[in-house]
Amino acid sequence: MQSDFRRLAFAAVFAAVLSAPVAARAGDDPIVFDWSGYEDPALNPAYNTKYDHAPEFAFFGDEDEAFEKLRAGFKADLAHPCAQNVVKWRDAGLLQPLDASRITGWNDILPGIKAMKDLMTAADGTAWFLPFDWGNTALIYRTDKLTPEEAQSVRIFADPKFQGRVSIGDNVDDAYALAALALGLRDWTQMTDEQFKEASEFLRQVHKNVRLYWTDSTDINQAFSNDEIDMAWGWNETVASLKKEGLAVDMMRDTKEGLSTWVCGYVLLKDAPGNIDKTYDLLNARISPEVAEFMVSEFSYGHANAKGMAEIDPAVLEEKGYADVDKFLDKTLFQSPLPNDLKLKMIAEFEKIKAGY
């Protein structure tokens, strides 16, 4: 019933967004197609100082929804996908290249993020993606229900004794990142057909324990708060929010298989209708070092600018789990861009798994 409601809600939003002409906006301020919450002006202080008007924002619930809206004709200047979807968007003709020479923080991106396969540039050197925020999908658990020793492996998600006490995201990328780690993989772009079958079978075992597939932080926060689940495969933000509420939760970053790291950022959309100079000013404001501390302290996510991360109070980094960024990024499965045929297989198979097949 909830999923039906969400589909109807997304359909209504979709129709409203497409029916609103881009020309109706005020002036030539850039339009940013983004996740809810990223409209916070504290994420672009330099832009706010330079211009009287704030950038405009339109929101999507997930990247598949965003992709379909853009393919249907919705126009904006920038969008905020995560790395694993950039190739798909580029190949669909939704993007135009970035001019890296106009991005002042381009050379300051964290080395561990720069090293991700096919992330910032294509093989021919063309720039397509500016990393902005990054974080983890990892094992979150109730510390009053499980001990750290019990939470030492991501395979706990498939343990029959936790039937009905587990939640993972309704998100194919996070799901297969979990499954890849369970198989001992750190580079999911090289997943063989046999490994894909093993990963899918693991997710079928996890499905038997799933109480709900969460779609946003509200779902997972409520499930933990209402004592519906003991563990989840989730994001840093959830731990930060629930700890503020006094709930006994923690993120296990030291499972023997490791954890998954996602990197999201900005792409320049084809036929962007706004002022291109303002658009680059907004990108430069968001990637500037001064934004890093706000990102870490308020969102509990890392910022892509290495200089900015280096300037943050070590106590804050320790509290948020980013004390040793280089070591941290070394022990992870990066959600790198996937071959399109593999991504399509994952999408189709995950739908079957969720339906119980």
Score class of each variant (00 low, 15 high):
residue 318 E to D: 12
residue 155 R to Y: 02
residue 339 P to F: 14
residue 291 V to I: 10
residue 21 P to D: 09
residue 295 M to W: 00
residue 40 D to M: 03
residue 43 L to T: 04
residue 138 A to N: 10
residue 247 L to V: 12
residue 15 A to I: 01
residue 38 Y to P: 02
residue 89 W to T: 07
residue 334 F to V: 07
residue 337 P to L: 08
residue 231 M to V: 06
residue 1 M to Y: 05
residue 216 D to C: 04
residue 28 D to T: 14
residue 61 G to F: 07
residue 93 G to V: 04
residue 215 T to Y: 13
residue 313 D to F: 15
residue 332 T to N: 09
residue 33 F to L: 13
residue 329 L to V: 03
residue 245 E to T: 15
residue 164 G to M: 05
residue 50 K to F: 03
residue 195 Q to H: 04
residue 61 G to S: 10
residue 58 A to R: 13
residue 76 A to Q: 09
residue 71 R to Q: 14
residue 112 G to M: 03
residue 92 A to T: 09
residue 90 R to M: 09
residue 229 I to R: 02
residue 279 T to N: 04
residue 353 I to C: 00
residue 69 K to M: 14
residue 195 Q to N: 03
residue 303 H to T: 11
residue 170 D to P: 00
residue 234 G to I: 11
residue 342 L to I: 09
residue 52 D to S: 15
residue 230 D to W: 14
residue 249 V to R: 01
residue 110 L to N: 10
residue 144 D to G: 04
residue 170 D to N: 14
residue 316 V to Q: 13
residue 115 A to N: 07
residue 274 G to P: 07
residue 345 K to P: 01
residue 345 K to D: 06
residue 222 Q to D: 13
residue 45 P to K: 04
residue 38 Y to S: 00
residue 300 S to C: 13
residue 246 G to Y: 06
residue 324 D to G: 05
residue 222 Q to P: 00
residue 50 K to V: 03
residue 146 L to D: 03
residue 256 K to W: 01
residue 57 F to E: 08
residue 70 L to V: 06
residue 58 A to M: 15
residue 251 M to P: 02
residue 337 P to Y: 13
residue 134 W to E: 02
residue 133 D to V: 15
residue 213 Y to A: 13
residue 151 A to W: 00
residue 76 A to R: 05
residue 103 I to L: 11
residue 83 A to H: 13
residue 320 K to Q: 11
residue 340 N to S: 15
residue 151 A to S: 15
residue 322 Y to T: 03
residue 166 V to P: 04
residue 257 E to W: 07
residue 310 A to I: 14
residue 268 L to D: 10
residue 187 D to I: 10
residue 24 A to T: 14
residue 293 E to H: 10
residue 184 G to Q: 08
residue 60 F to C: 10
residue 268 L to S: 11
residue 2 Q to T: 06
residue 81 P to K: 10
residue 191 M to F: 03
residue 21 P to A: 08
residue 147 T to K: 05
residue 70 L to Q: 00
residue 62 D to S: 12
residue 7 R to I: 10
residue 205 Q to P: 01
